[in-house]
């Protein structure tokens, strides 16, 4: 059943990411160059709705939460490497698959690169684990555990900050950010 849920969530997620133009590298670069903030606002609102929704729902039913550990060197270092790749190619691991479904040829090259990156990492993991995974591992910490807050209260607080930040961002100019070629 979980496999079917995964497939359905993926289809809907693919449609939403395509509709918001997150699978367009031109749109991603416009956001990273701060010329258009619609994807940043979309992500912030997704998180705000998700945090309040998930923790509110957890009061009524069991939830499959899965908190990732904060091993500072790997998480921050990985984020920096990811950011360079995101700025260079304009794709993330999910949006390149959506883009490939749309028929974007550069998305196929991003997926191919991802496969190569996965091969390199698979063989580098043994050497990297003691240097980047083991030291400074703070465990599965959350905003609620660090601030000693009830998770629902922390979720509402985070959502308020994110929605406040969205409200302060300038509205989009109408023009499409990057010219399609191809």
């Amino acid at each position: 059943m979980a496999l079917l849920y995964g497939l359905l969530v993926g289809v809907v997620m693919g449609v939403l990411l395509q509709r918001v133009r997150a699978s367009s590298p031109g749109m991603i670069l416009s956001n990273l160059r701060l010329q258009n903030l619609s994807i940043i606002k979309f992500m912030a609102l997704t998180i705000a709705v998700g945090a309040v929704g998930a923790y509110a729902l957890s009061l009524f039913m069991p939830m499959h939460f899965d908190i990732k550990p904060t091993y500072v060197l790997g998480v921050l270092g990985g984020g920096l490497v990811f950011g360079v790749g995101f700025g260079l190619g304009g794709y993330c691991p999910g949006t390149c698959v959506v883009g490939a479904g749309e028929g974007r040829k550069d998305a196929l090259f991003a997926i191919l690169g991802g496969i190569v990156g996965a091969i390199v990492f698979t063989f580098a993991y043994g050497a990297l684990e003691p240097i980047l995974f083991k030291p400074f591992d703070l465990g599965k910490i959350t905003l609620a555990s660090v601030l000693h807050l009830n998770p629902v209260v922390a979720a509402v607080g985070l959502a308020a900050v994110f929605i406040g930040a969205i409200a302060l961002m300038p509205t989009e100019r109408g023009a499409p950010p990057a010219r399609d070629r191809g």
């Binding site: 990732k68 550990p69 091993y71 790997g74 998480v75 921050l76 270092g77 990985g78 984020g79 920096l80 490497v81 990811f82 950011g83 360079v84 790749g85 995101f86 700025g87 260079l88 190619g89 304009g90 794709y91 993330c92 691991p93 390149c96 090259f109 991003a110 997926i111 191919l112 690169g113 991802g114 496969i115 190569v116 990156g117 996965a118 390199v120 990492f121 993991y125 990297l128 980047l132």
Partner: peptide, 13 residues
């Protein structure tokens, strides 16, 4: 970009 996003993502988990 694809190489870096997957390598970075796997490093970060």
């Amino acid at each position: 970009g694809g190489v870096l996003i997957i390598f970075g993502a796997r490093l970060a988990g």
